[in-house]
Design a protein around this nucleic acid. Structure first.
Length: 765
DNA sequence: CAGCCTCGAGTTCC
DNA sequence: CTCGAGGCTG
């Protein structure tokens, strides 16, 4: 299984299959057939229970696990697949859509270059990373970036076994049945590696798009805004027969897991894919230098209108695959590839009004209301205006944007879609500005609650200070609480939350868990409300009950504490492992947190004073004096150090957390909430790994894995990953370029390994 | 202390 | 998707 090639050796996702489960290899044929029969029965029963609106007999997770197991056995014994196979019954559960597929190798996105200089920077940083001179030869491939949707096709023994959309890169949707209907996607290939994941783009040609819309119009169906939407809509049909009738095409340009390498260079790998029977883009070229890349970009740009399909730029990739492997990946993008985007399409329209929205942190965000206009195939009527500086014509550093032109209601403005998605304002036509147009007066009071809206020194945003008083903040916080990554309560989305809040039924998260006892009596009250019937009420109460057991990380994230996002919440959960332990630690640390803030304030004063007096600021002395004056108990200092010692958690986040838990109103709300919940601790780490319970620090650059991967892997093995070396550190993993941490570790006599040593240590786990 | 990288927060339209 | 800002490295 262990393949020597980088693209199948991402350490955090061991194993080859796209789905995770027990191996089924030892099963005999008879056992497999029996198991398939059992699974078909169970799943059919579960579907029936679901459809007849009885309480579902099994949870979604259990249902998914059964389906997964069924699919795996079928993959192992394809000839045993039943006529009534559950895997063929797409979308058996309504609203569920496609089943989920984890990618064996993450599907990355690409970094962007918007001008020639960005491309030069890209080349320079690669050379720097590889230690190459500016004039050393370095070849790249350049190809059009197709504007469609990416798809990963898994072939085993030359047979197409699975097709998955990109999703979030980790987990996509299983669209195998639909992919099989696309003519450009071969069902079988000859002479391929045993395992081959081909990646590429599904798209629709201009001609096919026009014909499809004509047909849709004739049949009274809905029209698609552009070829990409048409392609996406067609691929994501639950009924594969509809997909079959849609003229989709596919270009292959990359690969995921491989049992053996395709070639030694990108260009040869693409040629190999072509020889296996895939369509590859005819404008793919190997370029020997930057000039050739840019020239090919211009050439493709010139042909753009006559290609017959949409493209939105040119992708450059380092040609040498062994160099690609050396460069590796950042968190979401490879270091060895970049997309050189074409200039965005622009459109002029009139700015009718500027509205102010209030977010969950109290941020006042201005939104432009526009006379609707078509930009890049989509009608746009709103655009973000970011913050008050942006409207005034400045960026965060006070630099002019739009030549310093401000934006006024009544102006003619030029709109584009940043990254082809978010509408923004590029320019203002001063010659068409109405004479009575006034500069926008940014509110200094919250438009929702009237509290003062304050802009902190050095901050770009103005925030409502109303806190719990502000209804807008309360609603946004509640929406965050029920959002996907937080409590994810089915049937309780943004709309419902707004309605419940307006009615005064839900004011804070705990109220959600008291809905049934307070308003569910006989369901009468709920039934009387618009859009609510008995069934939806029962379902809602069930969905709420399902979430009374909640993982600690989700709970922490759901609280909506400023600076604590999904990742931070996970880090905190792994560190404290228990809600009460975390709350107690924060209480203990409080005096140290306050001392830290006092020291920050003193530091700022000292800076200003020093500047006024023309001397150097004595930062560390000032801080030390303040902290000792605060007489912080040693256990508080220890608890604070423990908190901000967690990798990824610093003083800002620590203070924000500390404030939330020390605020009596917020704390009372937390306590009311947790009284309704059973908090699930993070998964217990593997017991018998050599690093279980050890504190590990990574330093220097890691070449075979990203930091995030290294961290995730270490944590999965039961290690604690810290950000800095202390006497609590058990092991330091030092890559090339390690500096002060390595020295500290050596002086403390801490065991030190290089990256290979670390990989050897955890090998096979 | 500067420069990178990652994360958080806010945003639009389908 | 983008911007700003927090956190880490060197």
């Amino acid at each position: 299984m262990a393949s020597p090639y980088h693209w199948s050796q991402r350490p955090d996702r061991p194993g080859g299959a796209m789905t995770v489960s027990e191996p089924i290899e030892k099963m005999t044929e008879a056992e497999a057939a029996q198991e398939l029969e059992r699974l078909a029965g169970l799943l059919a029963q579960a579907n029936l229970a679901y459809h007849t609106q009885d309480a579902p007999e099994i949870s979604d997770a259990e249902y998914d696990a059964l389906k997964q197991r069924n699919a795996e056995i079928e993959a192992q014994f394809p000839h045993l697949k039943r006529a009534d196979s559950p895997s063929e019954q797409v979308g058996a559960r309504p609203g569920e859509g496609f089943s989920k597929v984890s990618h064996a190798v993450r599907m990355m996105s690409l970094g962007n270059a918007f001008d020639d200089e960005d491309v030069t920077d890209f080349d320079r940083s690669i050379r720097k990373y590889l230690g190459l001179d500016t004039d050393a030869p370095l070849a790249y491939t350049a190809e059009p970036k197709i504007d469609g949707l990416s798809l990963s096709l898994r072939y085993e023994q030359g047979v197409l076994v699975q097709a998955a959309t990109r999703g979030d890169g980790e987990v996509g949707e299983n669209v195998t049945a639909n992919a099989r209907t696309i003519a450009d996607i071969p069902a079988r290939i000859e002479g391929a590696p045993e395992v081959l994941e081909v990646r590429g783009e599904v798209y629709m040609s201009h001609a096919d798009f026009a014909a499809l819309n004509t047909r849709q119009e004739a049949e009274g169906g809905k029209l698609f805004a552009n070829p990409r939407n048409a392609a996406a809509g067609s691929l994501r049909q639950l009924d594969a027969a509809i997909t079959r009738a849609r003229p989709l095409r596919f270009f292959a340009y990359s690969w995921g897991e491989l049992s053996e390498p395709l070639a030694e260079t990108q260009m040869h790998a693409i040629e190999r894919l072509a020889s296996l029977g895939f369509q590859t883009n005819p404008l793919t070229r190997r370029c020997d230098d930057l000039e050739a890349m840019i020239a090919h970009y211009r050439d493709i740009e010139a042909q753009r209108a006559t290609l017959g399909y949409d493209i939105d730029g040119v992708v450059y990739k380092l040609d040498d695959l062994s160099l690609q492997a050396r460069l590796g990946f950042r968190s979401t993008t490879p270091r060895w590839a970049i997309a050189h985007k074409f200039p965005a399409e622009l459109a002029w329209t009139r700015l009718e009004a500027i509205d102010i929205q209030v977010g969950r942190t109290g941020a006042l965000s201005p939104v432009a209301r526009l006379t609707p206009v078509t930009v890049g195939g989509v009608v746009v009527s709103n655009a973000t205006l970011h913050n008050e500086d942006y409207i005034a014509g400045r960026d965060s550093r006070g630099q002019e944007i739009r030549d310093g032109k401000d934006i006024r209601v009544g102006d003619w403005v030029q709109v584009y879609r940043a990254g082809d998605v978010i509408p923004k304002i590029a320019d203002v036509d001063l010659s068409k500005r109405p004479e009575d147009a006034q500069p926008f007066d940014f509110p200094t009071q919250c438009p929702e609650c009237g509290s003062p809206a304050i802009r902190e020194e050095g901050d770009a945003v103005r925030r409502c200070t109303g806190g719990v008083i502000c209804p807008a903040q309360a609603v946004e916080k509640l929406k965050h609480f029920v959002s996907r990554a937080a409590f994810d309560i089915e049937g309780l989305g943004a709309k419902q939350v707004e309605q419940f809040h307006a009615d005064g039924w839900i004011r804070e998260p705990a109220d959600i868990f008291e809905l049934r006892s307070r308003y569910g009596e006989g369901l009468q009250q709920l039934k009387n409300r618009e859009g609510w019937g008995e069934k939806s009420a029962t379902n809602l109460f069930q969905a709420i009950d399902d979430k009374r057991r909640i993982p600690l990380a989700r709970l922490i994230f759901a609280l909506g504490i400023r600076h604590v996002g999904e990742v931070g919440a996970k880090d905190l959960a792994l560190h404290y492992r228990d809600w009460d332990a975390m709350a107690a630690a924060l209480d203990t640390a409080r005096p140290a947190a306050l001392a830290h803030r006092a020291a920050d304030t003193a530091e700022e004063q000292e800076r200003q004073q020093a500047q006024a007096e023309g001397r150097r600021a004595r930062i560390s002395d000032t801080r030390a004096a303040v902290i000792s004056a605060q007489e912080v108990p040693p256990e508080a200092a220890a608890a604070w150090a423990d908190l901000i010692g967690v990798d990824g958690i610093g003083a800002t986040l620590g203070l924000s957390l500390s404030d939330a838990f020390a605020n009596t109103d917020e704390r009372a709300a937390f306590d009311r909430l947790t009284a309704h919940l059973t908090v699930i601790p993070p998964d217990a780490p593997a017991r018998d790994s050599p690093v279980a319970g050890k504190t590990v620090v990574f330093t220097g650059s890691l070449e075979k894995m990203t930091r995030a991967e290294a961290k995730a892997r270490a944590e999965a093995l039961g290690a604690k990953v810290a950000g800095s070396v202390s006497k609590k550190t058990d092991l330091l993993v030092a890559g090339p370029g390690a500096g002060s941490k390595l020295k500290t570790a050596q002086s403390l006599g801490i065991e030190t390994l290089d990256e290979d040593g670390w990989l050897t240590l955890i090998e096979g786990l």
